[in-house]
Nucleic acid binder design. Structure first.
Lengths: 215, 215
DNA sequence: GAGCAAACTTGCAGTCACTGCAAAACAAGC
DNA sequence: GCTTGTTTTGCAGTGACTGCAAGTTTGCTC
């Protein structure tokens, strides 16, 4: 670790039990994100200041930037480690799976993760409603993840991105499906199941279904 | 017109001959963009200041913001009127064309437009090479355009975005194809034809080809 | 439990993007 | 040359974001 700040990737071994310290860091991160969303819902995205968010989360403004690189990152809960996690998840899928299957499985898991904390998810959806520019990122479908996934699938296939167009396109199409699904979900007032919509989007995009994600 | 600044959409009638004033504005816009790119190539994106760009373009810093809303917009040449233009282009395609065809034709035109000024295009490519985060936007494949195109195709079909997933997905897939094509182009050192790559990407994405764009 | 080292927080001082406003410079038409 | 509408500019301010150099806390070791 070279930075010496809270933004560190965390414990080195993947299986390490979260230390007390890491737990606290995670809590602070969530508190900052939650505070940002709440305040944004209350007074509008542009009216919220980092200072307020930090105060609401009980840390100094300076510390805010140890957790999120930008105010917007805090609003959408952009966690670099989450991006890394998803990239690793793609890489961890069985080697014989075609990219489309690995991506579909991974993004499906991802969406399941979004709904883990229902209350927070409710607030985030509301924010997406009021600030559509943030919608894609709130659904975890921003540029950064797209790039990470593209890189991941190329690593899987071991093909040359300069000649193999299809692999990267598949990753980008998968992200397009996620964005389309969330957009539909949003304009539909968040009725119905986002997961179903995502499934439909994957199908419509011609991305092969993951045969069975229970094993 | 309500804003009273240079960021105005321009003359109301589409066929109006560009007045001297409009010509000058366009020149200033290009000068700012060019200066921004040149400076960024010279010293790096983060090292360029708006003040420098404005000075290089021969305007005051304040005037800079009459032309571009953000520094990044100037770097990628984000022209709101261009987004509008593309949206209108999609709307102007024959009503009986399926969305995929209209999108493919429009984005193909768009890419042709990119290469209009070879020298500027060369610099922009170089910038994309050095600052990959900007690549998508440099190719004109950013969030804003994606949203605009999604909206445009839904307008064409007249369907309800809350129930019709396919239409929006098609637009997002088309953008994915553009991004994939440009990404490949970039990692391939900009050898070969971007247009060919885009064609291949559209084909791979299953977007029907535009039968004939000459008429 | 004292002591140590590494990790985390904070304050400070600074840079720079970006904004609203009102006055100046300017262009186009009469 | 004057009028009117547009564009440019200066000014003054807000707030995001950063590097740095203390503080403070945590986890470990003896």
């Amino acid at each position: 670790m070279t930075t010496g700040t809270a933004a560190d990737p965390g414990p080195a071994p993947a299986s390490a039990p979260p230390s007390l310290r890491d737990l606290k860091k995670e809590q602070t991160r969530v508190r900052l994100h939650t505070a940002a969303v709440l305040l944004a819902l209350d007074k509008g995205v542009h009216e919220v200041t980092v200072e307020e968010v930090a105060a609401a989360a009980g840390v100094s403004p300076r510390t805010f930037f140890n957790y999120y690189a930008t105010k917007e990152d805090a609003l959408v809960g952009a966690d670099p480690s989450r991006t890394e996690l998803l990239r690793d998840a793609v890489l961890a899928r069985p080697a014989d799976e075609p990219p489309a299957v690995a991506l579909r499985a991974t993004l499906t898991e991802h969406v399941l993760g979004l709904e883990k904390d229902p209350e927070l998810w409710r607030m985030r959806r509301e924010l997406a409603l009021r600030s559509p520019e943030l919608a894609a990122r709130i659904a975890g479908a921003g540029d950064r993840l797209e790039s990470a996934l593209v890189e991941a699938v190329y690593t899987r296939t071991g093909t040359d991105p300069a000649t193999d167009l299809a692999t990267g396109l598949t990753a980008r199409t998968a992200m397009a499906a996620l964005r389309a699904a969330f957009h539909q979900h949003r304009v539909a007032g968040f009725s119905g199941s986002l997961l179903d919509r995502l499934d439909a989007a994957f199908d419509a995009a011609g991305l092969a279904p993951a045969p069975d994600s229970s094993g």
